[in-house]
């Protein structure tokens, strides 16, 4: 066994020892809390690059009908906004939605209202946001393309 491996094993034992000593206090907190089950969460970090303020982020501004920045799809019946929904299983930590997670969902906003009136892209965007969805840029959409379920 090398020096390094030995060293590591020593450290590991110390961690073990401290973890074994469950204080009464912490035990109560665990039992009282909703986490009386084993929990593991894995950090998803690579997304930060795509998330840099310049590429992604929700679009909050008004969207003109000739906008090419916003993600839209045309299935043959007119342009419809791509309305994205962050993956529920991702912790959003109270911040505005920043990452659509691993299995983001999306739908195409209807481009007509219930009375048959055409909806502008901006109206569609507002409907999307009103339903808790996220209007994203075309660039952001292409980076999620293929991972977006439900479209």
């Amino acid at each position: 066994m090398t020096e390094e491996q030995k060293n590591k094993q020593m450290e590991q034992r110390e961690v073990k020892a401290s973890a074994d000593k469950l204080s009464e206090n912490k035990r109560r907190r665990l039992i009282k809390g909703a986490v009386a089950i084993p929990v593991i969460m894995t950090l998803q970090s690579g997304a930060a690059l795509a998330r840099t303020s310049n590429l992604v982020g929700s679009l909050e501004e008004d969207i003109p009908d000739d906008s090419t920045h916003v993600a839209t799809q045309d299935l043959g019946n007119g342009k419809r906004i791509v309305c994205a929904h962050p993956d529920d299983s991702e912790d959003q930590s109270g911040a505005p939605p920043y990452d659509l997670g691993n299995a983001p969902m999306g739908h195409l906003e209807p481009n007509f209202d219930s009375n048959g009136n055409a909806l502008s892209l901006n109206d569609q965007a507002n409907n999307c946001r009103g339903g808790g969805g996220l209007v994203i840029s075309a660039t952001a959409f292409s980076s999620f393309d293929g991972r977006m379920a439900g479209l």
């Binding site: 840099t52 303020s53 992604v56 982020g57 929700s58 909050e60 911040a95 505005p96 920043y98």
Partner: peptide
């Protein structure tokens, strides 16, 4: 450090 999500 002020780490933050876009728009914060």
């Amino acid at each position: 450090l002020f780490p933050a999500w876009p728009g914060s």
